[in-house]
Nucleic acid binder design. Sequence first.
DNA 1: AAAGATGCTGAATCTCGAT
DNA 2: TATCGAGATTCAGCATCTT
Lengths: 376, 376
Amino acid sequence: MPVIEKVRAPSRRKPRVAAPLPLDTILRGDCVAAMKALPDASIDCIFADPPYNLQLGGELFRPDGSHVDAVTDDWDRFDTFAAYDRFTRAWLKEARRILKPNGTIWVIGSYHNIFRVGTAVQDMGFWILNDIVWRKSNPMPNFKGTRFTNAHETLIWASMGEKARYTFNYRSLKTLNDELQMRSDWEFAICSGAERLKGEDGHKVHPTQKPEALLYRVMLAATHPGDVVLDPFFGTGTTGAVAKRLGRRFIGIEREEAYIAAAEARIEAALPLDESLLRTMQAPRNAPRVAFGTLVENGMIAPGAVLTDAKRRWRVTVRADGSLAGDGGEGSIHKLGAAVQGAPSCNGWTFWHIEAEGGLAPIDTLRQQWLLATQP
Amino acid sequence: MPVIEKVRAPSRRKPRVAAPLPLDTILRGDCVAAMKALPDASIDCIFADPPYNLQLGGELFRPDGSHVDAVTDDWDRFDTFAAYDRFTRAWLKEARRILKPNGTIWVIGSYHNIFRVGTAVQDMGFWILNDIVWRKSNPMPNFKGTRFTNAHETLIWASMGEKARYTFNYRSLKTLNDELQMRSDWEFAICSGAERLKGEDGHKVHPTQKPEALLYRVMLAATHPGDVVLDPFFGTGTTGAVAKRLGRRFIGIEREEAYIAAAEARIEAALPLDESLLRTMQAPRNAPRVAFGTLVENGMIAPGAVLTDAKRRWRVTVRADGSLAGDGGEGSIHKLGAAVQGAPSCNGWTFWHIEAEGGLAPIDTLRQQWLLATQP
DNA sequence: AAAGATGCTGAATCTCGAT
DNA sequence: TATCGAGATTCAGCATCTT
């Protein structure tokens, strides 16, 4: 391909460049039009709760905002699905443009729309990381007894592509779940009581207000403090309220003035958490690295010391450079641990032990002591 | 449109007429070809467990170094989403033809394929009645800590069209569920132990054998005794074994001779109406486990709240992710409780206390309040 | 004999930064 | 962009062995 092609290719459209982001504000209007005004690769996370009243006799809007009539016969059914698909791909296209390369997108829906959304997400190059089930502890019963009680909704979580990086605060979520990995099924009550926004008439302001606990978990899992979270179907602003509480920035897009007014009042009243409380558990992955040799250099462990595995099956000697030597060969704590086990890899910190008061202790305890003594 | 069109339209192909159905047998071959040999509108219910198109990468090892036996069979490999979609629509087309007008179809899948299946189901004119979540009580963990534990699969249940009638044994399901309406989230263990078919080498016969309890509930809900249930991806015949137990007829389609042999032996050994299975399904696994983080997410306790032990020797602060932070370090209620005491373990629920009316109260009282408020 | 210890396994899109 | 090496990473259920 001639060089000139390489130069021309990226300029097919004018990239939106660094205009300041409208942080912590609600943009009024159509979500596609509003997203078009935002710069490329500027958003860390998108949470989207698109309309999915496709088959309920409710309203469906085409990308241009025009109304699609509820219809029942086959031809029109196809037309309705096709219109919904066009709408979905239109807003997903802009969402993809404004997301950073390491950003992620969340979309929530029910069986009426989530399969179409998921197919579009995959077709557009996003890479699904998980589907999450929100189990409702108090769903509306199926009054007619004609089907199973519709007791859940589905969220799709996707990165920008198969190789894309993304934020997942594994350690925080595990802590949140009492030291068990967080699963793909989450249980929350539907939004009601004091949390549910009511108008002056006592009637609910928005028909599908999401519980703050749901957004809380989403943001805790997939964003860092200070990250920008965009919600293109902002409604009454659950995303904004939780973002403020959790020290994230938000951008909302909403077309209904009544929802915007309710959201603004609600977010104004939300209280941000103290920053120290937000500091999520520091993942070991992000903890300062300590080489085993550092411990040797600093006298935490002497050259010549003998290490074994927890069951004393293997026995090795520490050398002056922090390498190990024994029957199984020689090498770093990790390499030799893997070698003696015949395993592809091994965490030497937890595999190798040293004789201590009260029995064997993993050498990782020495590292922890070192970190405690040297970290501010 | 001219009248002749209406007359000609149905005769474009020759309808398959009443050949006797191959009841309670397994047809060997490709599912589309085998279905083409069956007559129109002859099947009451279809249960389909198609390939999931997992798109797995390299090898995966557990933290202990052992190897994960993944699904790498040829039948699960598709080059593109488009190829998978063609495959899906081809078998769904025949499924639709052979289903009776009042029949229903079930399809099970994971996030890798279920959105594409659901879209095809809707596009072809089926009417989704429910999506059902199979919550696995014992899923495989996410060994690398990169995502949420993939702890569920999704089933789609659909009728032949919006106005179509269908079988739903509401009363049976409600009885099965202790007089509560059966919900759209079902909990079962994955298929293991004695139920899991093993070869002479002790290795599993089929990589993705489904639990009989799942099929039991599906058939109990959506078929009558004597109904014909077709499974186009029969595998080792869970559908056939359960059909025999419940007094339904089955037709299986399977390509692999080894699976067919295992299925035939299994179905031969199955006993009709094993009441013990019914009883095990009725026993609700109601051991509600509440994570401390749940109380934080739901506002039972605020980030920033101060906890102490019963004698106020240690003092810690609750953070946004449900972890605690204080002089002794940081961690979950259990880990930090153990750390400050220098103990190997600790029950944080009874160790940590919060200031309440009338003095300190263990945080377990908050858990009890939460359970009271949320349990039926 | 009972209780505890050990080992194996399940539809899984499973690391990251430096060079 | 590919390669290399450090080092982080698991839950429930069942079968079998040990004390």
